[in-house]
Every structure is written in C-alpha cells, then in structure tokens.
C-alpha cells in the first residue's frame, strides 16, 4: 500500500461530487459521463447537445490545464494496446446497455439511493475485481 493517497483521493472525489451538484443546480441533469457522451452519438443536434459537448471539452481541458499549472497526474497503463481497445469496446457497449457507469450509477445514482444504480455498482465492482483477479493471479500465475 505504498501508493495509498486517502487525502488527495477524498479531495478529488469531493470535486467530482461538486461537479454533479453544480450540474443538478444549474441544469437539473445527472452528471453521468457515459450518458453525456453517448447522448452526443445520435448525430442529430438536440437541445442537450451543446452543454454535453461543453461538458466533455471541460472534462478533457481541466486535467491539461492543471498539468500546465504544475499538478500533473501520473498515468501508467496496465495492459497492451490491443487489450485497451477491447476494453474500450466492452466499456462503451456495457455502459450504454446498463444505462450508466462509475459516475451515473456509482456516484449520482447511489447518492439518489436508486435501487438500479446500487445493483449496477455492486455488479460492475464485482466483475471488475473478478477480472483483475483472473488476469493478474490466475492467468499470470502470480
């Protein structure tokens, strides 16, 4: 546990919560990243398209802005390029089919005490842990 970072993780989590609350206060919307992103894939301009696009621009821009200001995140990959593409495909399909991801179900949904989101979060956490166990300990033989 040499990389245990409870304080920065708690602060970062608080910012994610703050963003969700801001979006609810201003626009009355759930801050679900998969919903916001997949909502842009209908190829028709809807009343929600502009703010969704702006949200994604802010999401991509802020970490770069922070890095320029000196707060650069560590980004280390744990798998190969082909596996990353497969992972992306499954994540994209699964989050749209299941109606949410870590943010929509895991944060906003749990905060609303939505039964669907609580179940979804338990399921994706369980499958995430099981997948890492299989890849890291069974397949890798470690």
């Amino acid at each position: 546990m040499e990389h245990f970072t409870p304080i920065s993780s708690l602060i970062g989590g608080g910012l994610i919560g703050l963003s969700a609350v801001m979006l609810m206060l201003l626009s009355g919307r759930i801050a679900g990243i998969s919903g916001i992103t997949s909502g842009l894939l209908s190829f028709t301009w809807t009343p929600d398209s502009a703010w969704r696009l702006a949200f994604v621009v802010g999401l991509i821009g802020a970490p770069v802005g922070l890095a320029i200001a000196g707060v650069k995140p560590e980004i280390s990959f744990v798998t190969s390029l082909p596996i990353m593409a497969i992972a992306g495909l499954i994540v994209g399909f699964g989050t749209v089919l299941g109606g949410g991801c870590t943010s929509g179900h895991g944060v906003c949904g749990i905060a609303r005490l939505s039964p669907r989101s609580i179940i979804a979060t338990v399921v994706f956490m369980t499958f995430g842990v099981a997948t890492v166990f299989i890849v890291r300990h069974l397949l890798a033989g470690g």
């Binding site: 495909l89 499954i90 994540v91 994706f124 369980t126 499958f127 995430g128």
Partner: peptide
C-alpha cells in the same frame, strides 16, 4: 451491461 462494463474496467 454492468457486468460487461466491470469486465472492461478490470481489463484496462
């Protein structure tokens, strides 16, 4: 959907 997402999340 949640199960698939979990698998992809674990992989990458």
């Amino acid at each position: 959907g949640a199960a698939l997402f979990g698998i992809g999340w674990g992989l990458g």
